[in-house]
Design a protein around this nucleic acid. Sequence first.
DNA 1: CGAATAAGTTAGAGCATATAACTAGTAGAG
DNA 2: CTCTACTAGTTATATGCTCTAACTTATTCG
Lengths: 208, 208
Amino acid sequence: MEERRQAAGSGLRGRYRAQVRDEIKQVALNQLAEGGPQALSLNAVAKTLGVSGPALYRYFGSRDSLLTDLVVDAYHDLAAALEAAVAKEEAGPAERLLALGYAYRAWAVGEPHRYRLLFRAPLHGYDAHSDPLVQASRLAMGVAVDVLTGLGDSGESPASTATRATTLWARLHGLVSLEIEGNFASMGLDPTPLYDAEIGALIEEGRR
Amino acid sequence: MEERRQAAGSGLRGRYRAQVRDEIKQVALNQLAEGGPQALSLNAVAKTLGVSGPALYRYFGSRDSLLTDLVVDAYHDLAAALEAAVAKEEAGPAERLLALGYAYRAWAVGEPHRYRLLFRAPLHGYDAHSDPLVQASRLAMGVAVDVLTGLGDSGESPASTATRATTLWARLHGLVSLEIEGNFASMGLDPTPLYDAEIGALIEEGRR
DNA sequence: CGAATAAGTTAGAGCATATAACTAGTAGAG
DNA sequence: CTCTACTAGTTATATGCTCTAACTTATTCG
């Protein structure tokens, strides 16, 4: 029996496997950045890598499986960026909240195709509420909750903290969504003051 | 010469043409509601209508052309819903703003696939900044600007009004986006108080 | 070495968009 | 009424995609 199947990390074969998987994801991300999820084609990825067609199915069971992997990666990246931004220990709660907001924006503006991937994923046919996806999305949200827990009165109820975290999330998401689609640019508006105002208002609320 | 080409509205032929176009769009919307833009297939639409394949190309030059038409229709519908909501003349500015916010939410929640169509359209490969699209999107925004113009101090600058309109739009879009993707439901949160709070805060700001 | 396993190949099914060439029905001018 | 021009629809086909199946080559490991 042995049941070894295709464990990823063990041995030389596993290393090679993981490396090829990363290469595939890298090329896929490039295609995504250029033409959006619609333009992500396994065939094109294979051609870029110099292999031909069905070879990729050794590494990803389907096109959607590859997409899901990219989404999960993006969630982890975003969460890491947010954590890094709020990790400065000397900063107070308000500063950390500002840093969180700016980090969120910077990540989204820097890689808009990946940000879209996070919030538009359900469109692409696969189940957006599958386990790894839900688990990954909680990561990013968890960072926000943590920061807000430090900001509010220590006696604040968890439910209230969750509500404020959600408000923060919604405001940031709203601004970011409009910004990366070019809605601000097409109106001749500078989005930066809007972020300042929205985050500032939340800090005020937290102190109240 | 004559240059008549295929003017839509003239004569019996034109009427039939417009009717078939509407039928196609109706079926396409149904498919969209079930499986998202990914699932919108000209072939499937044709099969549903009892015609076969390339017949639809008499009515829409391409799949993307059909999608663009649906997006423009959606913008017009949304704008009409917002206008209807704020049309009650006896209501004051604050009430109209609340009505606007609720109408926006109601439209999006009622037809989430069409709402997604509005803000995710650029993903689908075609140029989101093509003329009819941009023109249509200004409609919805115009309603918000109008209401806010009435709300603020009469001496407010147009730029400031535009900023507040954009803030309103971003907040509503953020909440609606999260709501229609099920993020509130999956967290056990009731979104209604959040809408109240966000719109209420904007009314406060406007009075300040 | 030799056997199991994995990677990669080609062939092809099935479905999609889209074009080309053709058929049949209809509107409108004379 | 007839003839012509146009239109809607057809089938056939090119091309591209995802994905499966069957086969071939290479590599790891007992």
